[in-house]
Structures are given as structure tokens and as C-alpha cells.
């Protein structure tokens, strides 16, 4: 297992190194003449106005919450999926009840018009 982590670390390091070297190479080759207009934010040619960083709409948080529920559910199901052949139909029934409960939650959100994008 130590070797698997070594491999991951080497892959991580190699990815960072590759990008860093390419960026350094590009830095040596490219021109660099910044000026005020060039560094201003692109807004279709007009002078930019106002603050670009606005708050997230609350709708995004709701979708994120629903996502979280289902993502964690999928994580629960991965070990179940691997062991299902050995555990037999009881494990299947349990998972089906679990999924049905979550699907009930989805239906509730659906009914409450949480899933509408406005």
C-alpha cells in the first residue's frame, strides 16, 4: 500500500512540475508589457463598473445540499456494491429501502419546487 501512495505522490509531483516548467519556459519566451488598460477586466470593451464578485444566489446552496445527500449516499453504496454478491438479497432489500427513502426526499424537494431553476 505504501507503494500505491508513493505512486500517487509521484504523479502529483510530476503534474505540478510539468505545469511549472511549461509556465517558466513560456515566461522566458513571451513578451511582458503590462499597462493599466491591458490589466483592466474584460467587459466587452466598456469601462468596467461595479464589483465583479457578487453573492451566490440561495438557489445554488439548495442544489448543493441535495447534491450532498446523494453524493454521500453513493459513497455508502460503493462498499455495498462490492459485497452484494456475497451478502445476497437481504443486503439488496436494505439498500432498496435506503434508496427509496432518499428518493422520497427527492420527490419532496420536487413537489416543494426546490428543483425549479428560476
Amino acid at each position: 500500500m505504501l507503494n500505491a501512495y508513493t505512486d500517487m505522490a509521484v504523479f502529483l509531483g510530476a503534474g505540478i512540475l510539468f505545469l511549472a516548467v511549461s509556465l517558466l519556459l513560456s515566461r522566458l519566451l513571451r513578451p511582458h508589457h503590462p499597462d493599466k488598460e491591458k490589466l483592466s477586466t474584460y467587459e466587452c470593451g466598456k469601462t468596467p463598473f461595479g464589483e465583479a464578485r457578487v453573492r451566490f444566489k440561495v438557489r445554488y446552496y439548495i442544489f448543493a445540499l441535495v447534491f450532498l445527500v446523494f453524493d454521500v449516499e453513493v459513497l455508502f453504496l460503493y462498499p455495498w456494491a462490492v459485497a452484494l454478491r456475497d451478502l445476497g438479497w437481504i443486503a439488496w432489500a436494505e439498500a432498496t429501502v435506503f434508496l427509496a427513502l432518499l428518493f422520497g426526499g427527492l420527490l419532496y424537494a420536487w413537489r416543494k419546487k426546490v428543483l425549479e431553476w428560476l
Partner: peptide, 22 residues
């Protein structure tokens, strides 16, 4: 693209801007 000028806008959060592609 390798020899093109690289512009980091003045309004950008410099470090996050650089880290994102990584």
C-alpha cells in the same frame, strides 16, 4: 500560445488565479 503575453488582470486574486489551472 507558449509565446503569447500572459495577462493577470489587476482585479484578480493573484494567487488563486495562478493556482486554479494546477
Amino acid at each position: 500560445v507558449l509565446v503569447k503575453e500572459d495577462v493577470i488582470p489587476a482585479a484578480a486574486d493573484r494567487w488563486a488565479f495562478i493556482v486554479a489551472p494546477f
